[in-house]
Design a binder for these strands. Structure first.
Lengths: 293, 293
DNA sequence: ACAACTTACGTGGAGCGTAATCATC
DNA sequence: GATGATTACGCTCCACGTAAGTTGT
């Protein structure tokens, strides 16, 4: 009469929520064979088939789905406990681990998380990471939330993400304060300027490139970067034009070092908050969504 | 950044609810040193003092008590899961493990648990055991409920029991159907009879002995037993008198082999249902209490 | 002295990784 | 052939028991 093995059950929970043994193994930093064995042992001890091994993927059986409900209850309580311990034994005090894509505008991030600073019961840590790291750490349950300007890929058989559009920033052509104001709409009169642009492949660049090619415009590109903080500095110090959401250079605009030369119609950068769907959503995440504009 | 060790947490839960490391070690069938080490490791990993080691016993710290609440939530869900699996994946179907003291009247037990037979969603297993076994298996969480005619000892620093009086049976002098009816109250006219009595030390015997000595009566004892089923047979086949709750020999009374010669005033046998206090009380136990008279 | 917890130390096996294998797309 | 699950096999370290140590009544 052996007792339930919670380690096995935890693995089962992670496999089931990930929907994929290989991905779960990566997230848990164990080999796929080890996971497979532990899962098999759980099934043997409970004397239940948890997954049907069909095709080359696992899908929950009826029994597995029911057991998953209990596992959800158990391990979401467990995560709440971890939260509670991490927050120094103050039940109301919440700590959020927020991941941000390295190349996002710091000003934008601050705008988004700023409201939390007023909440003295909520603290947070910002982790700037690549998209791959963000997704891995969300899956790991080491991040509560990730901020990106790209939707994550929804691969079949991989972890499912819950993405929420949290902001839409209109793009604009930014230039030095002393740049002659362009009354004419882009691209008329812009041929003589140099450009600092987001790197190829970024959303902003794609939008701008599309615009350029439809207008038969060939910008003289002085420099490229994928990091908004870097673009901000380059734009400030180069005297060239750039295409950015004004929030990136809001300080320079306020200081009259830079100005918005012309907003681009129908051109927006999108910001997404990505989470795992979770039965017991982190209350800090909820308040963040309600607080943010 | 290591994850919560649920095995350690489980041990902590059991130690905390038992209130005593040695007793918990016995229940869990591990050595006390092993438990001590695992507990220490949990404290080290969480970086929290869970118990204050004062005197020669453990008492929960403030933090320990809070963590215990989470552990309760986690492991009562875990036990519900075990129940669910044991009951063949039918959430409403409940299986009860009921322990009964070996020497209790089988008729009484049947009266108590009988109502469950009509509940087709509830099944049960009866385990007849000694008092020590009952208490150990309750502590083990291998029994949901124990039926006894004795209150369990409440030792300080040991597991706390929750006892509920479920029945009170009046004792009576039982004898053969053809025994001349005794109109006179005991002990007048009873000197010539032999007796079959519950063993010394049982509640019934204590009551009867007290009565005898206050009445200066010395019964001629033919045989003793502690098992009610045995007493029933001895009483039926010996032709002697006995002191029992009539329920023990209800069939023989109905068959006119035996009869109640005289109820004893103020003499009762008591029956108790013993459980562990538990946040999420087994729903089967609750219905049993509501069903039983 | 005894009862309860802690520390020391050696051991077995559960859990793991590597690598080979099977199966499906 | 690539991807994903299972099987085979050996190793490592963690949880365990025995036994000695510590502490408080």
């Amino acid at each position: 009469m052996n007792r339930l093995n919670y380690k096995h059950l935890y693995y089962f929970w992670r496999i089931a929520t990930t929907g994929n043994l290989t991905a779960a193994a990566e997230q848990l930093h164990v080999s796929q064979s080890a996971l497979s064995m532990q899962l098999k042992q759980l099934e043997h001890q409970l004397n239940v088939q948890l997954f049907t091994r069909e095709a080359r993927s696992l899908s929950l059986t009826r029994e597995g789905a029911k057991i998953l409900e209990y596992a959800e209850e158990i391990f979401s309580a467990g995560e709440a406990l971890e939260q509670f311990i991490a927050s120094g034994f103050d039940a109301d005090r919440i700590h959020l681990n927020i991941g941000v894509l390295t190349n996002l505008s710091r000003n934008f991030i601050e705008k988004f998380v700023g409201p939390l600073l007023a909440q003295d019961k909520i603290t947070f840590t910002l982790h700037t990471q690549s998209m791959e790291q963000l997704l891995e750490n969300l899956a790991n349950h080491e991040l509560d939330l990730a901020l990106t300007n790209l939707l994550p890929p929804q691969l079949p058989g991989k972890t499912k993400w819950q993405s929420q559009l949290v902001s839409r920033q209109q793009l604009a052509i930014i230039g030095p304060e002393d740049c002659e104001a362009q009354k004419q709409p882009f691209p008329t009169g812009f041929a003589k300027y140099h450009w600092i642009l987001p790197k190829q492949g970024t959303e902003i660049r794609n939008i701008f490139d599309t615009l350029c090619s439809s207008e038969q415009f060939k910008p003289q590109i002085l420099a490229e970067a994928d990091d908004m903080a870097m673009l901000r500095l380059l734009t400030r110090d180069s005297g060239a034009l750039s295409v950015l959401p004004p929030v990136v250079v809001q300080d320079e605009i306020a200081n009259h070092h830079l100005k918005v030369i012309q907003p681009l119609p129908h051109a927006y950068e999108h910001f997404y908050a990505i989470t795992l769907q979770h039965k017991r959503q982190n209350p800090g995440v909820r308040t963040l969504f309600t607080l943010s504009p």
